[in-house]
Design a protein around this nucleic acid. Structure first.
Lengths: 170, 170
DNA sequence: CGAAATATGTCAGTAGTGTTGACGTAATTC
DNA sequence: GAATTACGTCAACACTACTGACATATTTCG
């Protein structure tokens, strides 16, 4: 590969722009937006010794109380082992409780405690504020266009998961 | 804390909704959208033995050829050590070359090679397609509203970084 | 009923990305 | 000449993710 290092690697000095009609501007903005979007809860989580994974679990358990472990794995798209550690910590710290499934006793339904609900709200608050401020700043009166855009960014076969979740309008 | 496990943890069975006016729907959509947005390049990167960190470095070196190491660290908001590993790999594999700074010889200007440019484009292509499809799906004729929204999601003090980057209109 | 499938939990090992702190070197600035 | 700056590197660690294997309890099905 690097047979002749003296000439093999010629630096390209021009910036990529519209080549192939690629939307670099929006690609980058998604990166920056997400980076800062997650930074607010990250700071709060650090106080609890939690990470981003704990946040996601706590979020979905609060959004869909009674979720089973399998359902949670499916939403998060992670493996059982990845979930195990963070879920155990959240249970040990009293943020989440497990209840044996009423119909199928093999299942463990996951519910937030008052403590877990409280933390979930504390984590969501700055994110919601950031979104609201951005909508206002962009002069977007109708939330639904952004909602539609983001939803369309999700893989079609996974959009079903979103619809299961409660909507603000409900 | 868990003095009386039998009653300390009472499960909350109601889903969080509009409590405190928190926009859970959009918070969730940002998570889902970003998860799938990054999944396309992740698959390509796996073929090279690279990860998401390599992608980001490659992206910004292509967008701002001649970036110094310090500038790259500032954009990515990671530490020198985190960058070192991935940057070394990208240099060793001939995707990026370092050039001694012309004015300040302590600096190392980073440039993509033809190979690096090519990979950056390959990684950006599916992301750009996803964005374009989502805009169309959402019936958003004017990209600028989404662009403005995403930009407003970024911390104000960090927006300067975005403006340095080349715009599609240039 | 007994076997197979399912839901969950757990163990061991590994990888990628991030952190902090310290230290060394070359080059620039003062 | 001394301090600062830009960069590279070493060691140690944390978090999140992965794979593969195995155990247990429960349900389903032939």
């Amino acid at each position: 590969m690097a047979a002749r290092p003296s000439e093999a690697a010629t630096p390209i000095r021009t910036a990529v722009a519209d080549e192939d009609g690629i939307d670099f501007a929006l690609i980058e903005l998604v990166f920056f937006a997400y980076r800062d979007f997650t930074s607010d809860p990250d700071q709060i989580l650090a106080d609890y010794g939690f990470g981003r994974a704990h946040h996601r679990v706590l979020h979905f358990v609060n959004r869909r109380p009674g979720l089973t472990v399998a359902e949670l794995l499916d939403v998060l798209k992670i493996t059982k082992q990845s979930l195990a550690r963070v879920l155990k910590q959240l249970i040990d710290t009293g943020h989440i409780v497990q209840v044996q499934g009423p119909r199928d006793r093999r299942q463990r339904e996951l519910y937030p405690t008052a403590k877990g609900r409280s933390l979930a709200l504390a984590l969501a608050r700055p994110q919601s504020r950031r979104i609201a401020a951005a909508l206002q700043d962009a002069g977007i009166a109708d939330r639904s266009s952004v909602e539609h855009f983001l939803k369309a960014m999700v893989n079609p076969e996974l959009r079903a998961q979103i619809d299961i979740l409660p909507r603000d309008s409900s």
